[in-house]
Design a protein around this nucleic acid. Structure first.
Lengths: 104, 104
DNA sequence: GTAGGTCATCGATCTCTGTCAATATCGATT
DNA sequence: AATCGATATTGACAGAGATCGATGACCTAC
């Protein structure tokens, strides 16, 4: 996806292209609504949640939540499963781990 | 400073205030110029660099580099030491480690 | 097929921020 | 003190993105 198996940030100089990639990956996380989305989804009993259960605790409208979920989805941080009318999202920890590894 | 000794992101639900703090800390890192600055400074032989040695490899003007260094400084990611006319910057790894730990 | 509920997309607005030129500040040197 | 070089600050501008209302697409149930 984005930044798996990259050398840690401080180990060798970063060329411009890789810096752009890594910054883009971090930008996805650098938003309070998206951080809370990840945390909220993960803290659900089944580890998954649909959009309608996420708008109220965040205090954001449905289109805004959908937008953030799309960003998280494209970054590989969540996965989406359609079940009937509902779209269920769950956290994909691998991508988060990859980001963490790049920082140290 | 910002996010040391916080519980990992996916372990307990994030309240709005802490989400803001963590997002602000990540936003500092989520910029290609600042990532390259950290990497460049760290890769210097003495582990330190002055502004005049950083503008050329980044392809950015001196005020822009100064601006980014100030952001990194306020986030505790670098430290600054004035020596004569030159300002030397070096990476402070603790803050980076704290950020990494919050992600996993 | 009609109605109601769930989610995504579109378009607009507004704020934030990365960048630069110009200028100011400060130290060193003569 | 006068000048030169290094760095910081200011002000302006442009692009990015967070948010929302309105709308569209889709599924379910009656």
């Amino acid at each position: 996806m984005i930044a798996a198996a990259c050398p840690p940030l401080l180990e060798e100089p970063l060329d411009a292209e890789r810096a752009e990639e890594l910054a883009a990956a971090l930008k996805v996380l650098a938003d309070p609504a998206r951080l809370r989305l990840l945390s909220l989804i993960q803290s659900q009993p089944a580890g998954e949640a649909c959009v309608c259960h996420l708008t109220a605790p965040l205090g954001l409208r449905q289109p805004t939540v959908s937008h953030h979920l799309k960003v998280l989805l494209q970054a590989g941080l969540v996965e989406r499963e359609q079940r009937g009318s509902w779209a269920f999202f769950r956290v994909v920890p691998e991508q988060l781990r990859a980001l963490r590894d790049v920082l140290g």
